[in-house]
Simulated assay, not measured.
Amino acid sequence: MKKTIAFLMLAFSLTGSIYAQTEDQDKTDEEQGKVIRMNKEMFVDDVFDYTTGSTDWKYKGEKPAVIDFYATWCGPCRMISPILKSLAKEYKDQIVVYKVDTDKEKELSAAMGIQSLPTVVFIPKIGQPQIIVGAADKATFKRAIEEVLLKK
């Protein structure tokens, strides 16, 4: 019994430590202004107002956008997070990178048809959004940014 209690205490302390590190990393991203946490209200104001029932896509943003739909428990989501952070820094004057926690933003995730994680949506200034489902490498994301978001 003592071993079970000790094991549970260790498991809870490790879980808390991992969660705290994830939260600290997210706060660092926000402070640097590189990857922006997005909620439903921001999406409706800055990207597309899906609440009107309109299916005619018209992006509201000033710069092309990348939106990472993720969950904190998702291993592949954690794998691509530093890649997207790096790309946000690299393309800081050309695009904006957002992240949406699908567990906290269930309505938005459902409205966007998110069924698998991670799902990364590339939104050009003009035209339809394109997606990558699943983890990809930096070269694949760069190619999508160049071909979908920055094509002239």
Rank of each mutant, 00 (worst) to 15 (best):
I67S: 02
Y50Q: 01
D49G: 07
E105H: 03
K152A: 12
K92V: 11
S13W: 08
P76L: 05
V100C: 11
K99C: 08
I123N: 04
V120R: 00
F12D: 04
W57K: 04
P76I: 03
M79L: 11
K92L: 08
L150I: 08
L150C: 05
A136Q: 07
V97F: 09
A136G: 05
N39R: 11
P124E: 11
D93T: 15
T28M: 14
S13Y: 03
I80Y: 00
F141L: 03
F48M: 06
Q32I: 10
T55E: 15
C77L: 02
Y70V: 00
T15L: 15
V96E: 11
V121K: 00
Q32N: 15
C77M: 02
I114C: 05
T15F: 15
K142M: 10
T119K: 07
D46C: 04
Y19P: 05
M1F: 11
A110Y: 08
Y91I: 12
V120P: 01
G127I: 01
E146V: 01
D101I: 07
K152H: 06
K151I: 08
L14G: 06
R143M: 10
F48A: 01
Y50G: 02
S86N: 14
P118W: 02
K63Q: 11
F43H: 05
Q32D: 13
I131Y: 03
T52P: 04
M1N: 11
L117H: 04
K104P: 04
E30R: 13
K138Q: 13
Y91T: 13
D103S: 11
Y91E: 13
P82R: 05
S17L: 14
M38Q: 10
Q32K: 15
R78M: 12
Y70S: 09
L87A: 09
D46M: 09
S54I: 06
G61N: 05
T22N: 14
I83D: 00
D29H: 11
V97Y: 09
W57F: 15
T22M: 14
Q128M: 13
A71E: 01
D103Q: 12
A144T: 08
E90D: 15
Q25N: 13
M112F: 07
V66G: 02
I67W: 00
T22R: 14
E41D: 15
T55W: 07
S17P: 02
E62T: 14
K27A: 12
F7E: 08
W73G: 06
E105L: 03
T52F: 10
K142P: 01
P124F: 07
P82G: 07
Y98W: 14
A136T: 01
K138G: 00
K104F: 08
E147L: 08
T52R: 10
K138A: 09
I67E: 02
L117F: 11
V97E: 12
A111M: 10
L149C: 07
G127Y: 01
E30S: 14
K142H: 05
F7I: 07
T4Y: 09
F43N: 03
